[in-house]
Amino acid sequence: MSQQHGPVTAAVMTGTMPDMPDHDGPLQHHFDDMAQQNESSALGMWLFLLTELMFFGGVMTAYAVYRYLFNAAFAEGASHLDVRLGTTNTIILIFSSLTMALAVRAAQMDKRKLLVGLLIATMLFGGAFLVIKGIEYAHKWEAGHVPGAYFHYEGPLANHVHLFFSFYFTMTGIHALHMVLGIGWMAWLVLRSARGDFGVGYYAPIEMTGLYWHFVDIVWIFLFPLLYLFGAGAAAGH
């Protein structure tokens, strides 16, 4: 639900709503100049990311509390995650962040074909991430680790391992939804870039999407050690 607002916000704030084409060029009527408009969209996007930070912060807080309370059970639960797939996904996301950053650069330098290519590359990396995530989810489903009615786990810590998997699916699920919407939004930007909408004078939508995408990357940078590596460390250390 909330996840839909990321790209939509970017759309609304940068004045690129698909149903409201800009007739008078990119400068909207209530701004004095493009500088004011760009500064406003950048600040707006940052405030939105602040909101997103606190949104993820809510579930991170809950995770922190339970990990403090049920350390052993959470380590046991984490040991069932696949570190190799998690690491692969981390690397894929870093690649996508690089292509996104370079896409913004391409827009700044007016290299339109490069921009389109880099956006598509970012989408492909994002898609690969989601595919691997899907494989992981499928594994969890087969192993009976999906929380809820079909959860199946033997052992004295089963209750709290269930809690761990509740967090695993909630946190990675919200993160994946953010990615899906980011990719969908980028598809629209690819079309607009191919049309030649962006260049030296006007690339705010690309820049805002970049901020959003990097933020999603940062969330994963924290989810990865918190969820995957905890079990590995505990298994090796104890």
């Binding site: 909330s2 405030l47 602040l50 909101t51 606190m54 949104f55 993820f56 912060g57 809510g58 579930v59």
Partner: peptide, 9 residues
Amino acid sequence: ILGTPVVAM
């Protein structure tokens, strides 16, 4: 902007 997302979560 700082509080609402937490209650949303």
